[in-house]
């Protein structure tokens, strides 16, 4: 195999497969991430709860999902869990999204727990001493501050999830990596399809990095000393 004799025309012939792969990867990652944030917030709050019956299940969940390989989770969910609960499979999309949500929720929960616990406890005391309930204090005082600290690690988690989403090829989900595998199998050529797949992931992670940097900047602006609204009395 001559590395200088690459046949990009093969890729071009399969462009629709790669584009479909791109679409599937995006749908999997974005739905997995959004679901993972929602579930992660609940679990993260659960991990900061003083009530044992909320704390322990949250902690157990997070430890289970962080302590096992995502590949194993995907296989269990697709081949065992969903068929056992529903008596049938709903295809790779449902299984894939479910696995990504459940997995990223555990990591997001840790980020959210750490963010909440990083806020000085004097903040909660000051809020409670004014008469706010625990949940009002959480919503108005603790979470807004914690959220700003969570943006960078939550962004990293988004990028990690995008890359990990390629593991769903194991259940024949037709994502970017799957497209590469098909082409590789058909032509017994490996450089072109896998380089293209790697390049597509690289472009996506690059764009995500830019997006995260933008979000981070946006949310710190309202708190930028030099931009405070002086003289607006």
């Amino acid at each position: 195999m001559d590395i200088f004799d690459l046949r990009w025309d093969i890729i071009w012939n399969y462009r629709e497969l790669f584009l479909r792969g791109l679409w599937i990867t995006l749908v999997l990652t974005i739905s997995g991430y959004i679901g993972g944030i929602i579930l992660g917030v609940l679990l993260g709050l659960g991990e900061t709860s003083k009530k044992k019956w909320i704390y322990w299940p949250s902690k157990l969940y997070v430890d289970l999902f962080r302590g096992t390989p995502m590949l194993v989770q995907i296989l269990i969910i697709h081949l065992a869990f969903i068929p056992a609960v529903f008596g049938q499979s709903f295809g790779f999309m449902v299984s894939g999204i479910t696995a990504l949500i459940l997995n990223s929720a555990a990591y997001n929960a840790e980020i959210i727990r750490a963010g909440i616990q990083s806020i000085d406890k004097g903040q909660m005391e000051a809020a409670r001493s004014l008469g706010l309930t625990h949940s009002q204090a959480m919503r108005k005082i603790i979470l807004p501050q914690a959220f700003r600290r969570m943006i960078p690690p939550l962004g990293n988690e988004f990028i990690a999830l995008l890359k990990d989403s390629s593991l769903v090829t194991v259940i024949a989900a037709s994502d970017i990596l799957y497209a590469a595998k098909v082409v590789a199998g058909a032509y017994q050529r490996f450089w072109e399809p896998y380089l293209v797949a790697a390049f597509m992931y690289l472009v996506l992670t690059y764009l995500l990095t830019k997006l995260i940097a933008y979000v981070e900047k946006r949310f710190s602006n309202s708190y930028n000393p030099r931009k405070s609204r002086k003289g607006r009395i």
Partner: peptide
């Protein structure tokens, strides 16, 4: 919570809310 609204508290470490302006700190409650 009702009792606490009748009892103001000032802390050694101030504990102002850093993400709010002075105005918002005072008007929030």
């Amino acid at each position: 919570n009702l009792i606490r609204t009748e009892v103001g508290m000032v802390f050694q470490q101030f504990n102002l809310f850093p993400h709010m302006t002075v105005m918002e700190n005072i008007t929030m409650a």
